[in-house]
Design a binder for these strands. Structure first.
Lengths: 149, 149
DNA sequence: GCTGGCCTTGACGCCGACGTCAAGGCCTAC
DNA sequence: GTAGGCCTTGACGTCGGCGTCAAGGCCAGC
């Protein structure tokens, strides 16, 4: 099958396939006209890459899986190197999720505080010079120092 | 104070401050030599921006906070537009965290399945042609934080 | 023979938040 | 005078994963 068909089968674009080839993943045979030729094996390879990409893996992270398949293993994750990538990615995910939850907590705290201050300052505070074009800016008097935590 | 000192106070670089200025945040006065001049107000502005950046906010997302401070409000989040950004970012964070947890679950499932298959296949399975030089130590990757989309 | 459709390679564009370099100006100290 | 240290503007580089041309080749159908 040719590049356009493979791209369609995998739900991606020809540009992407050529990019993968340029990165050394997904090699291609050529027919008489120099056109790339693919088979079902390549489709499986490609689907493997796409799945990992959907997980947020970088292209380089998919390489062990690709090499594993190319070596004749039944699946991309039939090799220890692939499993190592899984584990590393799990650790990354955990770290990332944890960090984002921390941030979420902090932002929520900021929002809550600011809401209280706004509602407390609204009834009759001074009026800062609001030369802003995008609408009303309600007054507020209570100032706060550093909010780094 | 001059740009180098402000950068140091805020724990950032002069390049960053000039970049902020070019984006219309953090304007600067000039002295006789054309050098930028800042004061404590600018430092507070800058700290506000940096805090939001640390939360993973894009620079454009900090603009309402900056304008709020510049309008004379006591804090960057003393304005409704800033609160709206907080809320939007919370929603983004929730979506992002949720997505990453889904992914985490899927990856963990893949890993578990692959581990079982490996241990089941190892004792006496076929030996694919492994022409790969996979004896090197696993690459240590830095954990990267994904921005909220 | 001509149009249309698929393919080829090559190269620049994009996004964000800067890093890094280049060339030059001004002031201070020695 | 000259070395050093701060500052200025401008412009190109970075990272990933492609998108988007541009210019051209080959083949099928009419």
């Amino acid at each position: 099958m040719r590049i356009g068909e493979l791209a369609e089968q995998a739900g991606t674009t020809t540009r992407t396939l050529r990019y993968y080839e340029s990165r050394g993943l997904l090699p291609a045979r050529r027919d008489g006209n120099g056109h790339r030729e693919y088979d079902e094996t390549d489709l499986r390879l490609l689907r493997q890459i796409r799945m990992l990409q959907d997980f947020g893996f970088g292209l380089e992270d998919t390489r062990p899986f690709v090499e594993c398949l190319q070596a004749g293993h039944p699946a991309g994750d039939s090799c220890p190197t692939s499993l190592a990538v899984y584990r590393a990615k799990l650790a990354e995910l955990d770290a990332c999720i944890g960090r984002m939850q921390e941030i979420r907590t902090e932002v929520a705290a900021q929002l809550a505080r600011a809401e209280v201050e706004l509602s407390a300052g609204l009834p009759g505070g001074p009026d800062p010079q609001c030369a802003l074009a995008h609408g009303s800016a309600p007054p507020l008097r209570e100032a706060q120092e550093e909010a780094t935590t």
